[in-house]
Amino acid sequence: MELKDTRVIKADPATVWKAILDPEVLKACVPGCQEMTGNAEQGFTATVVQRVGPVKATFKGIVNLSDMNAPNSLTISGEGQGGVAGFAKGGADVTLTPNGEGTELTYNVEAKVGGKLAQLGSRIIDSFASKMADQFFQKFQDIVEGGGAPAASTAQPVKQGGFWAWLKRLFGGA
């Protein structure tokens, strides 16, 4: 699955770049991320919990930042083993372009799954991957525009209700 999208973030490229390299921000943005250790230079190890309907899978894996060309572009890639569920891997080529007061962030995402997830869930893999990518960059935008520091509660995994339900709960709605 490949998808491409663009969003404009109300912050200059340097600020956006800095946020991307911030492990706390990264951890907050990866949907379902429970644990992340490491650094931008050497990579991160992460534990991510994903729920799709009744399916719950825990992925243990790595997140890497590569092809870094500050503050213009980089690649964020991740790969996780989900035990009986199989594996998931994905990457996003991210480009930052100054856009008036802000930054245009363009991402080109490629996602792959293997094992049982592919064998049994092919009908929803693409939709789910695009939803994850959307959640990742929406969260990133919110954090950057909100001042660059993730809220304390964001260490919680995104719940089954998906991003909007999560957001509603976060702000006391629903």
Partner: peptide
């Protein structure tokens, strides 16, 4: 039988 380009069998149950 449907494979994706990575060799994953996408039709490995009666759902597909």
């Amino acid at each position: 039988v449907v494979y994706d380009p990575d060799g994953q069998q996408l039709s490995a149950s009666y759902m597909d």
